[in-house]
Write a protein that binds this DNA or RNA. Structure first.
Lengths: 145, 145
DNA sequence: CCGTATCCTCCACGATACTG
DNA sequence: CAGTATCGTGGAGGATACGG
């Protein structure tokens, strides 16, 4: 029996984490956004055990984030390419990356060690498409109340 | 010895996940954004075991996302309130929430089960503050290349 | 080069009982 | 109400060997 199963949850955050919440998933997506498609590209870049990479790749294909595309008949070889759904996850990763950089900017030690080239964006904001307004926690509070 | 320790990683995504990557962390943040501050508010809302809630709360305080604030001397009682760092995580959660709703909008069964009130935003976009442009994967590709 | 198979470890999480 | 204490488990992740 699975510990956490939120595939039936009504909360979009829980459902989202159900799809990409495993630790390596986001890292694999990051590499995919950077152009990786081959098994060993992911493997070397992430320094991940091959067995667990196989598993993560499989669940992500199942979740519709990646597509397994045959590029060689014999021996059978596959590319793992982002689906539309996977590509649409980009803003989330960008937001996370931007948040971390913002947070670490205040820590002297961390600043020197952060490699911006592995980040995806510098300074991001989330806006409401309808109004064009920046979505902040304070706005959220007002709207919600 | 810890399995995954990316506190020294140079990748902002890995570092970010190191701070909020545990499954319940984001759910706790969600509740905090919705106004929860007391132990049992989180506990009942999330239906989480008290022991693990204690641990998650402690690590999140340690990570600087929450602040433990004494509101009663005897017996000693605490509020868990968002720090500035915690509040600044809001856009990430908003982006994740928006992504999930977008993804599930195409699934008939899911559509009926999603409760928008537990999401944080209807239709969001992530933009670059400097240019005001919407951040998409395709733009990223062009900029990167 | 692209994985699969196997075995192992550890810790996040679950359940429950209990206390000031 | 606001937790602490204890015990148990499954699965994510690790290491390595092997195969087409």
């Amino acid at each position: 029996v699975k510990h956490k199963d939120f595939s039936q949850s009504t909360c979009p955050i829980a459902r989202g984490l159900d799809l990409v919440g495993e630790w390596w998933s986001m890292m694999i997506l990051r590499d995919a956004f950077f152009g990786a498609t081959r098994f060993d590209q992911f493997q070397k870049s992430l320094d991940i055990a091959p067995g667990i990479l196989t598993r993560r790749l499989a669940t992500m294909v199942e979740a519709g984030l990646l597509e397994r595309r045959l590029y060689s008949q014999k021996p059978p070889r596959h590319d793992y390419v982002l689906t539309e759904r996977g590509r649409s996850f980009f803003p989330v990763l960008a937001a996370l990356s931007a948040w971390t950089e913002e947070v670490l900017a205040n820590e002297d030690v961390a600043r020197a060690t952060i490699d911006r080239s592995t980040g995806v964006a510098a300074d991001l904001a989330v806006v409401d498409r309808a109004t064009g307004k920046v979505v902040s926690f304070d706005d959220f509070l007002f709207d919600g109340a």
